[in-house]
């Protein structure tokens, strides 16, 4: 049976006050149990698309939907159905990992979680046990990223949006991180990732959307990419050698 669209962008367009068109009629959807990678260089419009989904920006045209809810009309309700992890996950350094988790879980509507629930989430993302009750001040970026992902997990939202999640992570930490994403996909979450890491995009995603200068130039499924050189394809698209 076909999975429902959890995240859906319908002709999303964003033109800033200075006239810069950051996003130009971009449409795509992410289904439950699917990982969708928005691949593009800096300024391609990936983060703008994410910001529109999270209601940080209002679209000039088009509509972002989360679990069928129009974000522009009811952003608070829509955001109950999405978890977000940015590339800069500092969290609250004076709180322990568990306290950070507790705060964001309650913010996300999970009021009845117990200490063990938080510990399980932290175990799931591979954080060392001794770090559970340590303040985040001394955490490495990889450790903070894991806590951030645990926050996304405990929210149990059907959609997860990740903005450059592996940037700055060492290969081991990045691999661990991607392994967790696979688990979340298996749980039926719809995952939207923005990245400029072609290798990771091909490795993890079910669908890749190639973006450049605010346009979604191509959407390729894993099957379509199986026999393609994604790097070459990507470069061909952004250099205009292949018609969008």
């Amino acid at each position: 049976m076909d999975q429902p669209n959890i995240l859906e962008a319908q002709k999303l367009t964003k033109v800033y006050e200075d006239g810069l068109c950051a996003l130009d009629h971009v449409s795509f959807s992410v289904k439950a149990g699917e990982i969708f990678c928005l691949l593009g260089d800096n300024g391609a419009g990936k983060t703008t698309a994410i910001n529109l989904f999270l209601g940080f920006l209002n679209p000039t045209e088009g509509t972002p939907f989360i679990n069928g809810i129009d974000v522009t009309k009811d952003p608070l309700a829509a955001k109950q159905h999405v978890a977000y992890l940015s590339d800069v996950v500092m969290l609250y350094p004076n709180f322990t990992a568990r306290q950070n988790l507790d705060f964001f879980a309650r913010l996300g509507g999970r009021h009845n979680l117990k200490r063990d629930d938080y510990y399980n989430a932290l175990r799931q993302v591979g954080l060392q046990e001794k770090a559970f009750e340590q303040r985040l001040k001394g955490f490495s970026k990889g450790m903070r990223q894991k806590v951030g992902l645990a926050i996304a997990i405990v929210k149990e939202a059907p959609a997860i949006i990740l903005d450059e999640p592996t940037s700055g992570l060492d290969p081991k930490a990045a691999n661990e991180f991607l392994a967790i994403l696979h688990q979340l996909r298996a749980q039926g979450r719809a995952i939207l990732i923005s990245t400029h890491d072609i290798f990771r995009a091909k490795e993890i995603s079910d669908t890749v959307g190639i973006m450049s200068e605010g346009k979604l130039l191509a959407v390729k499924t894993k099957a379509e990419l199986e026999h393609e050189n994604l790097e070459k394809l990507y470069l061909d698209y952004i250099q205009g050698k292949v018609a969008a």
Binding site: L76, K79, Q80, A83, L85, V88, M90, Y92, G109, K155
Partner: peptide, 14 residues
């Protein structure tokens, strides 16, 4: 600057 503002507002916070 710490990135927590986006994280907070990715939830249903007014």
């Amino acid at each position: 600057e710490a990135g927590t503002l986006k994280l907070v507002f990715s939830n249903g916070v007014a």
